[in-house]
Amino acid sequence: MSDEKKTLLKVEGLTMKFGPRGRQNTVIHNVSFEIGEGETFGLVGESGSGKSTIGRCIIGLYKPCGGSIRFQGEIMEPGEMRREIQMIFQDPMASLNPRKKVGDIVGAGLDIHKLYKSREERDELIGSILERVGLSRDQANRYPAQFSGGQRQRVGIARALIMNPRLIIADECIAALDASIQAQIVNLIRNIQRETGTSFLFISHDLSMVRYLSDRIGVLHRGFLLETGKPDELFGHPVHPYTRNLLSSIPSPNPIVQLHPEEHYDYETSGIVYENGTWHTVGESSSHLVLCTDDEYVKWGAGK
């Protein structure tokens, strides 16, 4: 989709079902998108929309039921895990082993893949990555409980970063943090983006943070990717009624200017059937796409 960048990850027709045979629920419907080298793709949607499931399929925690995931041009086996793809989780307390020292948590990937020749080299790698995320070297000997929430999330980022990943999947990685700490972590992620050129799949329900961090955004609802585009395209000219409803629901920190959705969107009564939609380009832009039928395309004024 981005012309100037090489494609790093290509997801095509991804489908995921859960539940016992015969009574399966489809939670991801035929989702396709690409992430370029050094690009950040933001995935937004309500809880249960399938954001995390997509992330978990890519990293190999789930085996997709259909579709393909290509990484650096190669098709990945369902459930295949790669060193070049790392993940930062939501809850920094639940995702760090409380009985291990932070240095060993961060260095676990190095140990598994035997990525060092000597003990000194290992400690040096761990120390420098801790400094990179804003912690000090001697904190490697402490336990997660001795860290604050924001510091723990820095440990989670260090653990992902030490493997020199090409793609980091950040699943709601700031949701559990306090307002004043969120901005610190977001700035850290941005600096890492710029300095290392790592691609990100940034999964969040916080639309203003997604807008701030992403090069392109995808809107997910009920397991369907409904609309994708650059932040300005999506926020400036949202086309799909769900996207419009979502964006106008963000409460503004301006007491007098409070936008309200013109009407509440309800899939059941909207008359839209996501299954019938196909991808249409919005206006002239090659990056702004919406899932709809030809009739809906005209009705929503997407041709403009």
């Binding site: 604050s148 307002a179 004043s180 700035n187 941005r190 701030y212 926020f235 920190p253």
Partner: peptide, 23 residues
């Protein structure tokens, strides 16, 4: 000031203001 500045305003893409340290 810090709390209000830390909300991205959707336009500028400069470094987000963040309150240093922890409570």
């Amino acid at each position: 000031w810090g709390l209000l500045s830390a909300i991205p305003d959707g336009e500028s893409s400069d470094e987000l203001y963040s309150i240093p340290g922890t409570p």
